[in-house]
């Protein structure tokens, strides 16, 4: 495969139409909610790109647009050169997507789910077996592989979901808050695995609101506030630009600036 591995977002906007109930809940009369506002970014092979932003900033929405789960209102998203609206199936083939609101069927065992998604991804049996061994070993899923998903703890479920989302060894890994709900040991094993994937030449894009995680894990960070990209760069670049001592301080600088403008 001599294709470029990259995600290229150009002027992405996503406007949700709210229904009556949602409008009531958010105390607004405006039936439209702009979750992502003219956002552009490029993430390349061999890097871990972090979307950093407060709650409701539009991180999940952006990732879902990339993963073809929702359609952009405006702008283009290219994944390995395939536009998400024009060639959604091509895009789906090369991504692994994980988010908290995508779940595995609780009635089935991890083992079954892994095979199931392996088959859906069109993998031959032998390949599924190899992948299973690798991922189950790495995440120590073997112990509970035959338990039903509903009998698992949050951490186990998350591990299972990660393993299943990687069954087809995707070139692009899109993880929405992958360490959410995990203890530090499990979280560390997940971030370590993401580093390994990057070193294997994959493109990893994650969202987080945990500063320390972004600081340590991400090669480049895009700060999103209110659906807009306010800053982008390596940790060093961000710190230099704001003159802050750590990412948290730098983040607050950007946050104040963004809110001050508004």
């Amino acid at each position: 495969m001599d294709q470029v591995v990259e995600i290229n977002i150009q002027g992405l906007s996503k406007v949700y139409k709210l229904n009556k109930k949602q409008m009531q809940e958010s105390h607004t009369k405006n039936p439209k909610k702009t979750a992502v506002d003219d956002l552009s970014l490029t993430a390349r092979q061999g890097e871990i790109y972090g979307l950093l932003g407060p709650n409701g900033a539009g991180k999940t929405t952006t990732l879902r647009c990339i993963a073809t789960i929702i359609k952009p209102t405006a702008g283009q998203v290219y994944v390995n050169g395939h536009e998400v609206q024009k060639e959604p199936e091509e895009v789906r083939k090369c991504i692994g997507f994980l988010t908290s609101d995508i779940k595995l069927d609780p009635q089935f065992s991890v083992d079954y789910m892994f095979d199931f998604f392996g088959e859906l991804r069109g993998l031959p049996r032998q390949k599924i077996k190899e992948r299973k061994k690798e991922l189950f070993d790495y995440f120590q899923i073997g112990d509970f592989a035959h338990k039903k998903i509903k009998e698992l703890s949050t951490g186990m479920k998350q591990k299972a979901a990660i393993a299943v989302s990687l069954v087809h060894d995707p070139e692009i890994i899109i993880f929405d808050e992958p360490t959410n709900g995990l203890d530090i040991i499990t979280a560390r094993s997940v971030t370590d695995y993401l580093r390994k994937l990057r070193d294997d030449g994959k493109l990893v894009i994650v969202s987080t609101h945990i500063m320390s995680e972004a600081e340590k894990l991400c090669d480049r960070i895009g700060i999103i506030i209110d659906g807009k990209k306010t800053a982008e760069g390596t940790l060093k670049e961000l710190l230099e630009a704001t003159g802050a001592g750590d990412l948290e301080d730098a983040f607050f600088e950007y946050y104040k600036a963004a809110k001050g403008e508004a």
């Binding site: 789960i69 789906r92 609101d101 995508i102």
Partner: peptide, 17 residues
């Protein structure tokens, strides 16, 4: 039920038609 459980989306991100 599958929508409710959030398992439908996991099917939708695969390349299955």
């Amino acid at each position: 039920g599958e929508k409710e459980r959030g398992t439908m989306a996991s099917l939708l991100v695969t390349q299955v038609k």
